[in-house]
Simulated assay, not measured.
Amino acid sequence: MTDTTSRALALLNLLQTHRHWPGTELAARLGVTERTVRRDVDRLRELGYRVESTPGVAGGYRLEAGSAVPPLLLDDDEAVTMAIGLRVAATQQLVGGPEVTLTALAKLEQVLPAVLRQRVNALAASVQAPRIGEGPVVSPAVIGEVALATRDTERLRLRYMDGAGRESVRRVEPHALAPAGRKWFLLCWDLDREDWRTFRVDRVVAVEHTRVLFSRRDISAEEIEERVLVASSWSPQKVEAAAVMELPLAEMQDVFGPWGQGATPVGEDRTRWPFGGSDWREAMYALLWIPAGVEYTVALAEPHRSELREAVARLLRALDAPDPDDAG
């Protein structure tokens, strides 16, 4: 393999790993001049790869979908088969590690021609893959588009349906796609609310690409995992309650982290925090996380309020009583 061929393949790999590359950065990574990069781009175009170039200071190159699948990759039938398989794997979590599935899916979706994409959408909709356990149906087309934008740090407009069936448009910067249980979640920065939000992918009705790139915000893998855990743990509660604590909202959020989601300020010095559980015991467990020394009041409907009061009264009597003499 000649140096020219090796360099062209290295350039192709870079173009496939990110949506847009400045010409100066490509030249630096390949260790060549920008003029050489332009010649290598022309070679890729001759091979059938559609590489779009934009002039100017902020210009660069991006790999676009063409009229046919580029050579050296897959023929049409193979591309359709692989795209369907990757989409099913993404929704079923059948491949070892979601990142591998989504990366491969994003690469293929990026260059898939419109005609083949229509075939993939039609066939994927008719494929009934065996499901592992119960879980909501995730649109393969949606997860493919979201995976592509997440990889490329592209802002999206999402039409989103919440649990109550209300539809809204959300402007987001997608940071991570992650499975939890039998659901897929998108962690993103909500531009209108200026805060992190986690959306269930099966509730995304439509995805609109903006072609506007963003810089990733600092967030650790541990925090991503915790936020997804919080989102996956939420479900309509049989017992719903709220605590108003003598703690400003900012301090409360520092203590509770992602678990404080849904909290709202009550004046400057108090915070209302909704919580709940399957019964009064789970509700009581949530109250134990309120920091020591912080006073609070609780809104809890009957009969759960009386049941909790009776259990706490017995607990206090047990703690005030002498230690049991169990020697005998």
Rank of each mutant, 00 (worst) to 15 (best):
R159F: 05
P236S: 08
W280S: 12
E246H: 14
R216W: 04
A149I: 00
E154S: 01
D254M: 11
V207F: 00
D152W: 02
S215V: 13
V244H: 02
M284R: 08
E154P: 00
S220H: 03
P236Y: 07
D202V: 06
E222R: 13
D162L: 02
M161S: 10
W184L: 15
L187H: 12
V212Y: 06
G262D: 04
E222W: 08
A178H: 14
P274A: 03
F199C: 02
D152V: 01
L288K: 09
R151L: 06
V230R: 02
P265H: 07
P265S: 11
K183H: 15
I219W: 02
T150S: 01
A141H: 07
A141Q: 14
M284F: 09
S220W: 03
D162N: 15
D190W: 11
V146E: 00
T198A: 09
T198G: 06
L213K: 10
R159K: 11
S232V: 00
E194D: 14
H209L: 13
G257D: 12
P265N: 07
F214C: 04
P236Q: 09
S235L: 12
L187R: 15
D218F: 09
Y285H: 08
E240W: 07
G163F: 12
V212A: 14
W259C: 02
K238Q: 13
V255R: 11
T198I: 07
E226A: 10
F185Q: 03
R216S: 13
W280G: 11
G165A: 03
R170G: 01
R170I: 04
L191E: 14
R270G: 07
D190P: 09
V146P: 00
